[in-house]
Design a protein around this nucleic acid. Structure first.
Lengths: 153, 153
DNA sequence: GGTGATAGTCAGCATCACTGACGATCAACT
DNA sequence: AGTTGATCGTCAGTGATGCTGACTATCACC
C-alpha cells in the first residue's frame, strides 16, 4: 500500500472523487489502526464483531449471528471454529431445535471481548481524530444512512 | 448478504457504531450500484480506474499506474492483461527505458472510458442520493481527509 | 565492465466469500 | 405414523484479491 506520489495532486483529483477508491482506502487505513490494536488479544475485527454480537443479548444460533453480521452462514462456521479454538466461545446443540448450534461466550470470552472493544474504540477514535468530533459524527451518520437505505427493486 | 433482521434495532446499535462494519457494507452497497452500471461496458470498477489513470495525462508505465491506484505491481500485470485482451489499452516497451512497459489507451479504450465514467458517476449519485447534496459532499470530503492523513510513525 | 537497483513477469500462498451438496432435524399435512 | 418441504450446520470446491519471492532484462553509476 504505497501511496508514493511523484504526482500527488493528480491522484487526488482523479481518484479522490471516486467513492469506491475512498471507501476501500479508508478501510485499509482503519485496518492499519485496528489491526495492531487488536493483535494483543489474538483477534481480528471480524472475530471481535462476532463476540460483540454474542455478548449483546441471549445466546444465538450460528445463523442468527451470521445474519446480524451480514456474513454467510458458511463463513460463520469457520469463524466460530477459530473462536472456539481460542476458548472464547462454546458451541452446543440447541435443545429446542436440534438443528441449531447455540453459540455462547465463555467467561474468558467475556473478558477478552470487553478489553478488545475498548482497544477497538480507541483505535477508531484515533483514526477519526483528523476530522474533529462533529465531522466524525456526521461521517458515521452518513454511512449509516447509506447502509440502511433499502435497495431498489 | 442478507441483512434480514428479526431484530433490526439491535444490529444498528451494536454494529452501526463500528466503523469497519459501516465502511465494508457501504462498499458492498456501492458495488451493488456500480457493478450493474458498468457491466454493459464489460468493465469492473478497478479496470475503469486504470483507464481513468491512463486517460489523465501522458501514458504511464505499469508501475506508475499501479502506484497511483494503490495496487501492487504484480496486480497491475493481470489488470493490464485483461484490458489489453479487451482491446482497451496497448502495451509497448519504452524506448527511453526498456525495462518499462508504457501503457496507453486505444481509441476504443478512450471511448469506453468516457461512457463508463458517466455510468459510474450516475451510479454514485444514485447511491449517495439518500444523503442529500450537502451531506454527500461532506462525506466525500471527510473520507478524503482520512485517507490523506499521514500515518503516524 | 562490474555492481546494485529497478520493471515486468510468474508461481505460489493466504484470505475471503460464495455455491452446491449433504445429512440431520423440524414443521405441517395427511 | 409417514411423507414432504424447509431449515441449519458442515464441507468441498471455486473465483477473486493481494501478497511474497524468484527470475530476467535493463538501467545507472562508478
Amino acid at each position: 500500500m504505497a501511496e508514493a506520489d511523484d504526482d500527488g495532486t493528480a491522484v487526488e483529483e482523479l481518484l479522490g472523487a471516486r467513492l469506491g477508491y475512498l471507501l476501500k482506502h479508508a478501510q485499509l487505513r482503519l485496518n492499519g489502526h485496528a489491526g495492531p490494536a487488536l493483535a494483543p488479544f489474538g483477534l481480528d475485527a471480524r472475530e471481535l464483531a462476532v463476540l460483540a454480537v454474542l455478548a449483546a443479548g441471549r445466546p444465538l444460533s450460528q445463523l442468527e449471528a451470521a445474519r446480524r453480521l451480514g456474513v454467510d452462514r458458511t463463513t460463520m462456521v469457520a469463524l466460530v471454529d477459530t473462536l472456539e479454538g481460542k476458548g472464547l466461545v462454546e458451541r452446543r446443540r440447541s435443545e429446542q431445535d436440534r438443528r441449531r448450534n447455540v453459540v455462547e461466550l465463555t467467561e474468558r470470552g467475556r473478558r477478552v471481548r470487553a478489553d478488545a472493544e475498548n482497544a477497538r474504540e480507541a483505535a477508531e477514535r484515533e483514526f477519526l481524530a483528523p476530522l474533529g468530533e462533529k465531522d466524525a459524527t456526521r461521517l458515521v451518520k452518513a454511512l449509516q444512512v447509506l447502509i440502511r437505505t433499502p435497495d431498489e427493486p
